[in-house]
Amino acid sequence: MFFVLPFVSQWWTSDAVGGGPPKSLHPIAISPAEYQIRLSNSPRDIRIDWLGPQGGGRHHTLMVCAAYRGLQLKPTPSEPEVVSTGEVLYREYFLMGSEVVSGYGVYLKRTFWPGSSPGIHLIFSARASSYSPGQFAQITDGLAARIREHSMSADEAR
């Protein structure tokens, strides 16, 4: 019975995340649930994508999403949560209410029970020639925290 719960939860997922990113993140719509966002005073060469849930289901890992698009990503040796094509660095986070989660295993635990919100998938990317994996991890940690603050402020204003 327990092995079925993660799949059944997709039918009962609350849609508490809807509405897209706050305007303070300067969103540019790419598709109905996908936006490119920009933080004020953030590095211009780091792209940030905000992906809302599609169909109420749980998000895939970045590596799976990339594989669907023909990109083969590999973890970097020094920072396993930073993945790369060799030319571009990527890192994923999940915005879960008032918390930012890094790592898909933690995300799966947070979305295990029926009715759990699938959250927002945040994907950061930049040219590998611009940053070391360690620098990129440190910068994206800070940017993810700032996105969380913007989202919490927008929720409080509603």
Score class of each variant (00 low, 15 high):
residue 3 F to V: 14
residue 5 L to T: 11
residue 5 L to C: 09
residue 5 L to D: 10
residue 11 W to A: 15
residue 15 D to T: 11
residue 18 G to C: 00
residue 19 G to A: 08
residue 22 P to A: 02
residue 23 K to M: 12
residue 24 S to H: 09
residue 25 L to D: 03
residue 27 P to G: 06
residue 28 I to Q: 15
residue 29 A to Q: 14
residue 29 A to T: 12
residue 30 I to F: 08
residue 30 I to Y: 03
residue 32 P to M: 14
residue 34 E to F: 02
residue 36 Q to F: 03
residue 39 L to W: 02
residue 39 L to N: 01
residue 41 N to K: 14
residue 42 S to R: 05
residue 42 S to W: 06
residue 45 D to A: 12
residue 47 R to Y: 09
residue 48 I to Y: 03
residue 48 I to G: 00
residue 49 D to C: 02
residue 50 W to Y: 12
residue 52 G to L: 06
residue 53 P to E: 04
residue 53 P to G: 01
residue 54 Q to N: 15
residue 58 R to I: 06
residue 58 R to W: 07
residue 59 H to F: 06
residue 63 M to G: 07
residue 64 V to K: 14
residue 66 A to E: 01
residue 71 L to S: 11
residue 73 L to K: 06
residue 74 K to M: 15
residue 78 S to K: 06
residue 79 E to S: 12
residue 80 P to W: 12
residue 80 P to D: 13
residue 81 E to G: 00
residue 83 V to F: 04
residue 83 V to C: 05
residue 84 S to L: 08
residue 86 G to Y: 02
residue 86 G to C: 10
residue 88 V to I: 14
residue 91 R to F: 09
residue 91 R to A: 13
residue 94 F to K: 00
residue 94 F to M: 03
residue 94 F to A: 05
residue 94 F to R: 05
residue 95 L to K: 09
residue 96 M to V: 05
residue 97 G to E: 00
residue 98 S to W: 03
residue 100 V to E: 04
residue 102 S to D: 14
residue 103 G to Y: 08
residue 104 Y to R: 09
residue 106 V to G: 01
residue 106 V to C: 02
residue 106 V to Y: 08
residue 109 K to F: 11
residue 111 T to W: 05
residue 112 F to I: 06
residue 112 F to G: 01
residue 114 P to L: 00
residue 115 G to Q: 08
residue 117 S to I: 04
residue 122 L to W: 07
residue 122 L to A: 02
residue 124 F to Q: 03
residue 125 S to I: 04
residue 125 S to A: 08
residue 126 A to R: 07
residue 127 R to I: 00
residue 128 A to K: 03
residue 130 S to E: 14
residue 131 Y to G: 08
residue 133 P to F: 04
residue 134 G to N: 10
residue 136 F to G: 02
residue 137 A to F: 01
residue 138 Q to Y: 06
residue 139 I to C: 09
residue 140 T to M: 05
residue 142 G to N: 08
residue 144 A to M: 02
residue 145 A to F: 08
residue 146 R to C: 06
residue 146 R to T: 12
residue 147 I to F: 06
residue 147 I to E: 00
residue 147 I to D: 00
residue 148 R to N: 11
residue 149 E to F: 03
residue 153 S to Q: 14
residue 153 S to F: 05
residue 153 S to N: 15
residue 155 D to C: 05
residue 155 D to L: 11
residue 157 A to Q: 14
residue 157 A to F: 10
residue 158 R to H: 09
residue 158 R to F: 08
